[in-house]
Computed example of a mutant assay.
Amino acid sequence: MFLPILAIILGFVLLLWSADRFIEGAAAVAAHLGLPSLVIGMVIVGFGTSAPEILVSIMAALDGNPDLALGNALGSNIYNVGLIIGVSALIVPMAVHSTIIRRELPLLFLFGVLAGVLFWNGVLGRLESLLLLAGFFGLMGWTIWTAMRGKDDPLAAETEQELSSHAAMTLGRAILWLVVGLALLLLSSRMLVWGAVSVASALGVSDLIIGLTIVALGTSLPELASSIAAVRKGEHDIAIGNVVGSCMFNLLAVVGIAGVIAPMETLSLDIMLRDWPVMMAMIVALFVMGYGFRGRQGRINRIEASVLLVGLVAYNVCLANTVLSA
């Protein structure tokens, strides 16, 4: 048990550090290539913050643990809203100014419903997974088009300010960080998956539960760190945009890639009875709070943040009871 636990801890530490280096390198390379800052922020950085989930799920699927991959995707979305938005808005109440984010929130809801429809029959085959990946590439195209047209959006100004620190990085150093970050992401993902599966086997806990808890929390840490930093600098739209983008990436790319590599012939009934409904409840709560209706600006205050955190705690208590009663 000592080596698997050590692998999980070191995997988390390396995952956090390498994800930051990968994002910094990718953003700087894109800046040197002359890409608009909003495209870099929404596509390059957005993809980078989801890289831990994607790589962990690929490793899990390649190792024949698709439940771990699926649990990672659903659990990360639950933590993204419950923990990241909850903690960030508890520190500083968050206002949504960006029209782009208001357009993404309904998309996130629709992708969540699509995932539920595909999960409903208890099977996630290669065809369904390819459909999710097609949705991912469509999302990427729409995101680039939106970013190119949204130069006057408040999100653009925040992104320009956030990415200004990358302008001084030389191209050579940017490529170095990009390569080193990706290599360490692969290594840390492998360590994390091996440690998580070993601990699950030793404790008799399902891969799904491990994916929904330990792995999901660990792969959500990069978004938590970046969102807290963003709200403390007044960049509310970046903080919320990171979460919304990450959740869509998880539903489409993380689940899709894992399902293509290792089709899931028998999905746990708990996914549709417990995990998917909780994820959708979080998404709906974020949509209602952040969208803004009848002329009201989208805003997440400390009371609403507390509700999200309480919901997350209640969900984890439910998971703990499931493990103890097994």
Rank of each mutant, 00 (worst) to 15 (best):
L108C: 11
E162N: 10
V307Y: 03
G11L: 12
W177R: 11
F287A: 04
N80T: 10
A196G: 00
R299G: 02
N316Q: 06
F136N: 03
N321F: 13
V117Q: 01
D20W: 04
V123K: 11
P93V: 05
L55S: 03
L105M: 06
L171W: 02
T49C: 10
F109V: 15
A115E: 03
R102C: 14
G290K: 02
M280Q: 00
S18T: 14
N321M: 12
R173L: 11
A305T: 08
G234K: 04
A157Q: 15
L14S: 02
S226W: 02
T49N: 07
R102K: 14
L192P: 10
E128S: 14
D20K: 09
A31F: 01
M94T: 14
N301D: 15
I100Y: 08
S206Y: 06
S226Q: 02
G48Y: 13
L203Y: 12
S306G: 15
I238G: 13
L35Y: 01
A285R: 01
R173N: 12
V193P: 08
L155E: 13
G141C: 15
N242R: 08
A320T: 12
G122Q: 01
A60W: 02
V39A: 09
S18H: 09
L324I: 08
S220Y: 00
E128P: 05
T266H: 02
V244F: 05
I214V: 15
L192E: 13
A61D: 06
D67N: 04
L130N: 03
V45R: 05
V205F: 11
R294V: 03
E304V: 10
L155W: 05
L35S: 07
V317M: 07
R173S: 07
V113S: 00
L184S: 00
E223N: 11
I210T: 05
L155H: 09
L38R: 12
V193Q: 09
R190F: 12
I8R: 03
E104S: 07
V96M: 13
L182E: 00
A26W: 11
S98E: 10
P222C: 04
V45F: 08
A174L: 06
C318K: 05
L15R: 03
S50Y: 03
L203E: 14
R190Q: 11
L221N: 02
S50T: 14
G241M: 09
M191R: 02
E304F: 09
R173H: 04
P4S: 13
I300C: 00
E160Y: 01
V113W: 00
I303W: 10
T159R: 09
S18V: 15
D275H: 06
V317F: 14
S206P: 02
S37R: 08
V197R: 04
V323K: 02
N242M: 04
G298H: 05
L212F: 03
L187H: 05
V43W: 08
E265L: 09
